[in-house]
Amino acid sequence: MLHRPSAHESERRIWARLRFAALLATVAAFYAVCLHVSQVSVSRLAEGLPRLMNWIARGWPPDFSGLEELLLRAGETVAIATIGTTFGALIAAPLCILAARNVTPGMWMFHPARWLLNALRGVDGFIFALIFVAAVGLGPFAGVLGVMLHTAGSIAKLWSEAIEGAEPGPLEAAAMSGAGRAKVVLFALLPDVRPALSSITLYMWEFNVRASTVLGVVGAGGIGQELKNSVDLLAFDRVFAILIIILAMVTLIDAVSQALRRRLL
């Protein structure tokens, strides 16, 4: 190694500090622009707060009349998330193999697969649902399609990352038995990554139940539809009841999902 003169060393330190200062200034400027663009206003919040308090006060006691209908709608949300996650996972299964560096058949498949899953993941299920409502009409089916496409991208991305993290050794051992890619994946890779893949899928299901509560706002079914109707009617006791149901539902699904995930590990 060459011995560096100390003058050179201190010069480098000054440059490093300047770079850091420039970075701080850039971040600060970015925040300033964002605050301005998003119209953050403390005074408007202060004005709105009493109105909000008034609504909350009018929300008590919650109006659980027609509970059966509300529960049915909550069940619809769970159903949308469940079917959407399942179909999404089915689409993700071949995609994640193509998009995992260590098992992809080649870069000519890898890059298009990555683009596709990034596109699917980049568009929220809510936006997909908005489009599908226009295509297949109002109702939970549009929600299922929306959840499915977004989930396919998300699961494929997470699965391919889990696959890339798999130990290469057993895959090489399988390849040395003369097995091709399909057999290596089936026999040596899947048992290794199955717990991780299942855990990801359950997590996405849980996430989709939460995300699907808003699908009703665009007319894609579920409890969100009831929520929107009630907000539109300023029926705050009703809104309160629906929020309680959503919380209970999400808590229940989270608990089920977490219990299942714990058993996988």
Binding site: P170, E172, A173, A174, S177, A188, D192, R194
Partner: peptide, 18 residues
């Protein structure tokens, strides 16, 4: 380089995978 979550027999069977 065994498949950790498979049995000894399944790992030995890997020799027949090809």
């Amino acid at each position: 380089n065994l498949i950790k979550r498979r049995t000894a027999l399944e790992n030995a069977l890997m020799g027949a995978l090809g």
